[in-house]
Structures are given as structure tokens and as C-alpha cells.
Amino acid sequence: METNAETPQNQRPRGRPREFDTDAALERAIDVFSVRGYHGTSISDLSDAMRLTPGSIYKAFKDKRGILLAAFDRYRVLRNTKLMAAITPIPLGRDKIKAALQFYAEAAHGELGQRGCLVVATAAELAASDPVAAERVDVAHASNEAIMKNCILLGQSDGSVSTSVDAADAARALLCLLQGMRIVGKTGRSRPEMMAVTDVAMKLLG
């Protein structure tokens, strides 16, 4: 007996597939949130930047908070990939730390510096009131602190960092410095000024 039941192979997918590049749209949203902040950004701002209709935005991300959290995750992937590319090829722990500091210094001057850091912006605006956003920020900070600590420990094992340095405390200090550089960078500091911070920071390592 024949049946009209459809097999999984010929069933039509429910709903229309998204007709936009999600990563590209989120990267445009990153720029808006970084410059304007969460509360200063409207759905209209995001619609214009992401090149999507408000309806498409709501369907894909539900609301402005959903866009921020997705943009935050995308931002972390992009920044971590670039940071690791900058430090991984370098053999000595001390030189890895300097490369990481220079990586942040490059992002903390000129137009890029004034655009700001989405981790810093999210921490300042939402970490105290939004537990999910706060967790995202905590994970981001913990990741960067761990990278610094591992580089310090490597430096101590290869002789490029003094063994008198407490790796955990120094890593936390470097994390605070890195985040502080991004905040100061919003004020339009020059490249030489931010690179000079790197030189001073290296003295923490003995």
C-alpha cells in the first residue's frame, strides 16, 4: 500500500535558511558596540551596521542583548586567534610576553584604540547587572591571565624571566595592565606612548 509519508531525505527544511554571513554581520556589530557601548547602541544602529533588517536581526538573535553576546563570542575568537598567532612562533617566555604586550599596544592607539575593546566595554556596562555577560567577561579575563602566567612560567624554565617573580601575581598585574591599555587607548594616545608602556611593563619580570 502506498503512503504519502515523506522520508527524511525528501522532507523540506522548516523555515528559510539565513541569507547572510553571520560572522561578517557580527564583526560589524562588534565595531558598533565597541564605539558606542551597549546602552548607547540602538537596534537601528545595528541594523544599519550589520546590513540587516530589524526583522532579520530579531529572528536570528532575538534582541539586542543576544546580538551583544554573539558579538562578544566572535570578538573573543578573533582576538585570541590573532594573539596566539603573534606569540606562538616565539621560543622564549619573556619574548612571548613582550610580543603580547606589543599586540595590545598596537590595538590601543590611533583609530583602533579609540574604537575600544568589547571585553572592556561589556565589563564596564553589564558585568555588575547581567550574570551571563559577567561570566563571559570572567572567562575572557581568566583566559588572558592564564596565557600570561604560562608565558611567565616558560620564561622561568628557559631562564629569560627571574624565578623570584611570583607567576600568578605577575600574570594578574599584566592582565590589569593590558585591559588598562585598552581603556587609555580610547583617549587617542599615540603609538610611541603605548609602546613605552610595554617597555616599563617588562621590568615587572626582573
Rank of each mutant, 00 (worst) to 15 (best):
Asn4Lys: 01
Ala5Tyr: 02
Pro8Cys: 00
Arg12Trp: 01
Pro13Ser: 07
Arg14Ala: 04
Arg16Asp: 01
Pro17Trp: 06
Arg18Gly: 00
Ala25Trp: 04
Ala25Pro: 05
Leu26Thr: 03
Glu27Cys: 01
Ala29Asn: 07
Ala29Thr: 11
Ile30Gly: 01
Val35Cys: 04
Arg36Pro: 07
Gly37Pro: 12
Gly37Ile: 10
His39Trp: 02
His39Asn: 09
Ser42Met: 04
Ile43Lys: 11
Ser44Gln: 15
Leu46Ser: 10
Leu46Ile: 11
Asp48Ser: 08
Asp48Thr: 15
Ala49Phe: 07
Ala49Leu: 13
Ala49Asn: 12
Thr53Met: 12
Pro54Ser: 12
Ser56Ala: 10
Lys59His: 15
Lys59Ser: 10
Ala60Gly: 11
Phe61Met: 11
Asp63Met: 14
Ile67Met: 11
Leu69Val: 14
Leu69Gln: 14
Tyr75Pro: 00
Val77Ala: 15
Leu78Cys: 13
Pro89Glu: 11
Leu92Thr: 13
Leu92Ala: 14
Arg94Trp: 12
Arg94Ala: 14
Gln102Val: 10
Gln102Arg: 15
Phe103Tyr: 15
Tyr104Ser: 11
Ala107Gly: 09
Ala108Glu: 09
His109Ile: 08
His109Leu: 09
Gln114Tyr: 06
Cys117Lys: 05
Ala127Leu: 12
Ser129Asp: 15
Pro131Lys: 13
Val132Tyr: 12
Val132Pro: 07
Ala133His: 05
Ala133Asp: 04
Glu135Pro: 03
Val137Glu: 10
Val139His: 10
Ala142Cys: 00
Ala142Asp: 09
Ala142Val: 01
Asn144Ile: 11
Asn144Ala: 08
Glu145Trp: 00
Lys149Val: 05
Ile152Cys: 02
Gln156Glu: 07
Asp158Gln: 03
Ser160Pro: 04
Val161His: 05
Ala171Arg: 05
Leu174Ser: 01
Leu175Asp: 02
Leu178Thr: 03
Gln179Asp: 05
Gly180Arg: 04
Met181His: 01
Arg182Glu: 10
Arg189Ile: 02
Arg191Ile: 07
Met194Tyr: 08
Met195Val: 06
Thr198Phe: 03
Asp199Ile: 04
Lys203Gln: 13
